[in-house]
Design a protein around this nucleic acid. Structure first.
Lengths: 218, 218
DNA sequence: GAGACGCATTGATCTGGATCAAATCCGCGG
DNA sequence: CCGCGGATTTGATCCAGATCAATGCGTCTC
């Protein structure tokens, strides 16, 4: 099993053995659902491979993507009895599932694991505040640029630093993450490509003018 | 000192005594600053009276209010070395300040306090996700109605259930929280008042048609 | 009680991004 | 190679909310 680097860096070897005995390695087909908003939360997950779309729906079908989970990310922090959002696989996904009971027992027993999870949660909260700024006060172009730089940084932290940013999600997913329509996302990408700020490549985007992009994001 | 009901419900008496010995009761004048985004985080706070505006600024002055802290709310969860947002007093505010060192030492020593703080953080994260939905996908009228119902619920949980929702913040604060302009907030309030959905009273709003409001918020 | 200052409201107009409507692209199965 | 279906791009038009511009309205101060 892939080592749970993000959550478990501070654990001792025997604790890791315990943790791995509780983890159920699971595979999800492209497009399949990990869990659904409002359903009883039976498991928490640690993504080990692939990308997961996290989103909330309004009764009339309007959708807000609240995040994209990359390998190492932990899903299920922000839940009480029921999941607060839905999650589904973008492409093939591997994850470690923990039953809720095992998870809560483990957290109660291991304060330094809890400390790691809490740090994780406060980091997520900081990102959420940034996303509020983006959704409430930034223009379409700024939204796209901040999104691309953010994804680039996240891939870089996972050991994949590159000027080519993989974008496995659809334009609609990006639109629903940034509070835009698919047409505006497409047009803004086209305009940035005409500017030579980016180059659109299959499956992603190549950053051509990082200086300008950073200046806009500031 | 007011008992720190929100964070400390699970503490034993002697732990409470310890906690209170570390807390510095502090008073802030109307409009004064508790702390500023980007500055080194020296203290965390528990609000005991009054309302605090939490916000982020962009270099060109655009502002996003990320929340309003009410009595019982804890400030400083989402910070590492530096504060991630600014906080200032709306009207007179009382708070308990804890030095960062004392806070981290206490958290390390008391796992059930950490557990409470973690629950607090995950609740905040859930609220942040709802706010993303609101900012990204809701109309101006929906934003205002969700805001009013949310504030009503929060006052109710603090033991002040009422059809009259106090709004100590300015229209500009509300606009910057909802990703709107002050004019749109004002016009939308006026329209809701003409509808008889609400009644605008000095210092707040009276909820006249909770059924319609809940239907819109759903 | 006259000015002044800081909200808040209201009105007129403008515009960024939404909506409506076709193309175009592209991967895939037959 | 062809045709199909979903994703994406592009174009034309619309409109919710922004912007620009007064005006109202408490509540201080002198």
């Amino acid at each position: 099993m892939v080592r749970l680097v993000s959550v478990c860096a501070s654990l001792t070897d025997d604790e890791l053995v315990l943790l791995e005995s509780l983890a159920h390695p699971t595979h999800f087909a492209s497009g399949s659902t990990l869990f659904t908003q409002g359903r009883e939360a039976h498991s928490v997950y640690n993504v080990t491979a692939g990308v997961v779309r996290l989103y909330k729906l309004l009764s009339d079908g309007r959708r807000q993507v609240v995040g994209f989970a990359l390998p190492g990310d932990f899903l299920g922090l922000a839940m009480r009895d029921a999941y607060g959002f839905s999650a589904d696989a973008i492409g093939e996904v591997s994850a470690c599932a923990f039953s809720r009971g095992a998870y809560t027992a483990l957290v109660d027993a291991k304060p330094h694991l809890l400390k790691r999870l809490h740090e994780f949660a406060t980091h997520e909260l900081t990102l959420a505040h940034e996303q509020m700024m983006l959704l409430g006060r930034r223009t379409a172009e700024e939204k796209l640029i901040c999104f691309l730089l953010g994804m680039q940084q996240r891939w870089a932290r996972l050991g994949k630093p590159s000027v080519t940013v993989p974008l496995p999600m659809t334009r609609q997913d990006i639109a629903d993450f940034l509070g835009l329509t698919i047409e505006t996302v497409s047009r803004t990408f086209t305009r940035l490509a005409k500017d030579k700020t980016i180059l659109i490549v299959p499956g992603g985007v190549r950053v051509m003018n990082p200086e300008r992009m950073s200046a806009v994001a500031a």
